[in-house]
């Protein structure tokens, strides 16, 4: 999972195009920069700019369009582009989502959680194995954020991810905000979920802000990446670090992108929270 410079178990930031110039100028002391693979597939200017940043920072590649949950298999053309990006950047970390991005060549620009069934596990396992074969290294698979669930689930998500790790040798990207969002929306215990994950397989943590939304009589959490990391997610992050130790951690922010210094402050806070959690655990 790690080449191209192993990132320290500290915080990095999700690099978005509006911040590239400032990052190049300021060279902030973050552990790594994470880019979306799809953003540098078409945008050759952004690709060139990020390649230049790679001289100062380890770069992680995060896919958002592979559709690892697709029952019919993943798109060969997209996989080839993804493999080319991985080859070009030699990233410190490579990750994708346990999600469906579309079916039969039609995409919804969203990450839809698959059902937790043996058939879905078979499909995801085949897809993860195919990606890993194509890029010649294991990937980290990210747990989805959930608003919906399906009838007939045969296992919970932690069991599903554990089986995926066992079958494919992949690692996990533990998105703490997604756990918080899903646990709230579907009514499960976030700490029990964390405890049930195969900790040794966790190679990265994601943090982001969730947004509250009223829906009839209930309040849902939306994985909007549009605000600072909330206190419940900081608490869950501290518990994660206490449970399985520090990991390269990413602060994501996509909608309503703030100035770079706000994002850097969030990354610095992640380092402080992890440090405090380790001190308390010791």
């Amino acid at each position: 999972m790690t080449r191209g410079g192993t990132p320290a178990s500290r915080a990095g930031i999700g690099l978005r195009a509006p911040h590239v110039e400032a990052v190049a100028r300021l060279r902030p002391p973050v552990a790594f920069l994470e880019i979306h693979a799809e953003n540098v597939m078409a945008d050759l200017r952004l690709r060139q700019a990020v390649l230049a940043l790679r001289r100062d920072h380890p770069v992680a590649v995060h896919g958002v369009g592979m559709s690892l949950g697709a029952p019919e298999g993943i798109d060969g053309g997209h996989l080839a582009r993804f493999a080319a990006i991985v080859s070009l950047f030699d990233p410190c970390l490579v990750s994708e989502h346990l999600a469906l991005a579309g079916t039969h060549g039609v995409f919804v620009n969203d990450l839809l959680p698959p059902p937790m069934t043996r058939a879905a596990l078979d499909a995801a396992s085949a897809n993860v194995a195919r990606v890993q074969d194509a890029i010649g290294r294991p990937i980290l698979v990210e747990n989805p954020s959930r608003y919906i669930a399906w009838e007939g689930d045969e296992m919970d998500e932690a069991q599903f991810l554990s089986a995926l790790v066992a079958r494919t040798g992949c690692g996990l990207l533990c998105d703490v905000n997604n756990i918080h969002v899903s646990a709230h929306n579907l009514g499960f215990d976030a700490l029990a979920y964390l405890a049930a994950l195969p900790h040794a397989a966790i190679g990265e943590i994601h943090l982001a802000g969730a947004t509250e939304e009223r829906l009839g009589n209930e309040t849902l959490l939306i994985d909007a990446h549009a605000e600072p990391v909330g206190d419940p997610v900081w608490a869950l992050y501290a518990q994660s670090v206490a449970l399985f130790g520090p990991r390269p951690t990413l602060v994501e922010w996509d909608a309503g992108l703030p100035p770079l210094d706000v994002l850097l402050a969030e990354a610095a806070k992640a380092d402080r929270v992890a440090g405090a959690a380790l001190s308390s655990a010791a």
């Binding site: 919804v108 608003y147 669930a149 399906w150 009839g216 849902l220």
Partner: peptide
């Protein structure tokens, strides 16, 4: 069929698709 959620919850995904692609 088989979705354990009312239309409001699926509407979150529908809205994300509509809004994110409209922004694009």
């Amino acid at each position: 069929r088989g979705l354990l959620a009312g239309p409001g919850r699926l509407a979150i995904h529908r809205r994300h698709t509509r809004v994110s692609l409209t922004i694009a």
